[in-house]
Simulated assay, not measured.
Amino acid sequence: MKNELLNIKTEQQFTKNALNVFKHQFKNNKVYRSFCDLLYVHPSDITKIEDIPFLPIQFFKSRKVLSSLEEIDEVFTSSGTTGSVTSKHYVTDVSLYEESYLKGFHHFYGDIKEYVVLALLPNYLERKGSSLVYMVNDLIQKSENIHSGFYLNNLDDLAQKLVKLDNEGQKILLIGVSFALLDLVEKHNFNLKNTIVMETGGMKGRRKELIRNELHMLLQNGFNVNEIHSEYGMTELLSQGYSKGNGIFETPPWMKILTRDTEDALTVLEKGKTGGINVIDLANYNSCSFIATQDLGKVHENNTFEIIGRFDNSDIRGCNLMVL
């Protein structure tokens, strides 16, 4: 069944697979089963994806969320502030993650071998448990280009390389955390023609938080590009959404975004209304594919979505089942 999950072509296939994954995780995931039991939900009650319970993402901080008895391949951890409890995503089949992000990148951007990948991120050894760094490290390897690499602590070399390669007509993916991209444009001038600039969020106390429009305007002006791309992913997911501009994200065919009522976490909203972001990620076959995040956003009629902000802890309602 796992082989089918990332080969979905139609809405009907997605629904069928999602309902099957729900049954599998209800049966094999103790944490998720306990959560469903508290809600008095059983697979026999579920006929459409909107009825599936979404596990609050905070469970990844306090429980081992697993639907498999296989050995753990990787443990991805969130980058919490000092002293805070981090999320842990136990991955029993890391090849599923690799297939998901490679197919996802290809779906939106084409063959990774056409790109030089320049990363403004901590390198693999500096941030071992990061799923984002794992992905970018692999994209760097898969690009098979000698110029691809991590440049977070080497902005001058990066700027020189970026200008030279871009002028030569080389397709470039410049991917990085927001504060590092801002550092780069404050130190150097650019006029890029062949580069995708992709921010992955993250000021992490390094700079004042900016709203997306402000950040993107600064980066657009700094790199002299029309659009800033974004990646929507998290420790608890094995798939990513991508935005090619204006903060409007799309998902690959095996991932779907729904929104829930902020007052009633079990109610799924119709499209166009702002609510809590629920994610279905079928690549999470061995953990939990149905996650209620702490992001606020809205889904548009064409299934694109945007992120508007985050719940603060006082805003998170309907998660009083955390006593599990």
Rank of each mutant, 00 (worst) to 15 (best):
L152C: 05
D45F: 10
L218Y: 06
I248E: 08
I196K: 15
L39S: 11
F76H: 12
K113W: 05
V85G: 04
L38P: 00
Y32F: 07
G222C: 06
E74D: 02
D45N: 10
H107K: 12
N189Y: 07
H216V: 03
N3R: 01
K208T: 14
K256D: 03
F290G: 13
K204M: 00
L39Y: 07
N224M: 04
Y242C: 05
N153F: 14
K171Y: 00
Q170G: 02
V41I: 15
D156V: 13
G169M: 07
L324Y: 04
Y90E: 02
D45G: 00
S87I: 05
V323R: 12
V116T: 14
Y97N: 03
T262V: 15
K273M: 14
G309M: 11
L192T: 05
E74V: 13
D93G: 08
E99D: 14
N246F: 11
F223Q: 02
N153M: 08
K113H: 09
L237H: 04
G247S: 13
H106M: 13
S100M: 02
I211M: 10
E71Y: 01
S100R: 02
E209Q: 11
L218Q: 14
I211C: 14
I175D: 08
T200E: 06
H107Y: 15
T82E: 14
V299K: 00
E70L: 15
V299F: 03
E270H: 07
V133P: 02
G241E: 10
M198N: 10
V225T: 13
L218P: 01
S62N: 10
V163P: 04
R33H: 13
L210S: 10
L258M: 08
Q220A: 10
N303F: 14
